[in-house]
Design a protein around this nucleic acid. Structure first.
Lengths: 210, 210
DNA sequence: CAGGTATTGTAACCCTTGTTACTGTGCGGG
DNA sequence: CCCGCACAGTAACAAGGGTTACAATACCTG
């Protein structure tokens, strides 16, 4: 854990803070497609991502999901952060996109470190900043783009996150993330295939253009 | 300014900080429907709202607008805040919804106060928290609601912000805020009138149910 | 290998929303 | 008072995307 922590965060945090993190933080390894945080849950600790990726989802009253954004190494979840500080329930769901290693920080440390470490303050502000930007991207997508454009963007994002231009995913799973139906996704994927953007196979999709 | 500042913020900030704010802050009075911040502009100071209201808009590459949320007394713009810290350009447009008084704080003070005042830190975190929540509401609206539901929600929000159940607004203005066309808004407003939700008049709309 | 299940392809249909076009009406300025 | 303009009402049509239904195909398991 020490090594991975240093590798992922030594550019950002001073040594003293890194040491404190490894002292109070708890290493957690999660396999792919596991729920980490559920909507309505109280959040008792904050995740720092060492390796892997997490997707952040919003849900409406009928249980329909919408993917907001992905988190990668070096990210933390500003929504969680926000919930920690406000002592409120989580407004989002977090699910591992792949096998993931993260360090959980008890929330008591948050306030303490914010006062004590400038690098921590900057990290927190930086996190809020990037997360707000990603929220804007998410809004842009649902407000301004058609489904075929959103789909292509989704596929490219997912390929980037997975470091692999061949995605192991079913049409139904995509439909959940984009909050639409399987039939619509199949229809549009076929259209993208005819446009030579992608190659379709059972349980996987290969991107031909990045 | 002193009085209004104290009135709006004395619950939140300690006296020492209030004094510093009134020393370095610049009072700014803006009439309704004035642009305060434009997309792509660098932000050199941070607004604290004393009185009035501001609407925050997002724009796509074709110049289409979308209302994200309103700011009221006691609010600050987390997006601006975020831009200040990151020294990046504004991602949003801010327009006064009515005559508004605000205090502009030079960004240099931000970092200083964050280290110095606990109440300031809490205020900043609290702002990020509420803004993220409002962004989620905005996403919920565009992703999960039909236009008639969004319209009704918009009218109610606007009535609340203006402290007046009769809105001085044209169908075209609503269409801009909701990123749709005037014809659609007229159609849906008429439907809402038939449902006894509202009463339509030239240049104004009265809400019958709150 | 047979049967069951998950996945994908596709057609037909409908609803919401966007578009175009035209009409009517209230209001202010010359 | 009349003209022009901003605002609103409405019809007709198009497009995007959601829904239902069913067929075809791959894969897994007993």
């Amino acid at each position: 854990m020490q090594d991975q922590l240093r590798e992922a965060y030594h550019f950002i945090f001073e040594d003293e803070l890194l040491e404190e993190i490894s002292r109070v933080g708890v290493l957690k390894c999660v396999v792919a497609n596991e729920k980490i945080i559920e909507i309505g849950e109280f959040v008792k600790s904050m995740p720092l991502l060492l390796e892997g990726a997490i997707k952040i989802l919003r849900e409406d009253h009928d249980g329909n999901e919408l993917l907001l954004y992905f988190l990668e190494r070096g990210d933390t979840c500003a929504m969680t952060l926000s919930c920690c500080m406000g002592h409120t329930k989580s407004e989002i769901r977090a699910v591992t996109e792949m096998d993931t290693r993260l360090i959980m920080i008890p929330i008591e440390k948050m306030e303490e470190w914010t006062a004590k470490y400038k690098s921590w303050r900057n990290f927190v502000f930086e996190s809020y900043h990037t997360r707000l930007s990603e929220m804007l991207d998410a809004i842009d997508a649902v407000a301004f783009l058609n489904m075929d454009e959103r789909l292509l963007r989704y596929l490219k994002d997912k390929a980037k996150i997975n470091h692999n231009e061949t995605l192991q995913v079913t049409h139904q799973q995509i439909a959940y993330d984009l909050h639409t139906s399987r039939v619509v996704i199949s229809r549009l994927l076929k259209k993208l295939e005819l446009q030579d953007e992608i190659k379709l196979n059972r349980n996987n999709i290969r991107l031909l253009k990045l």
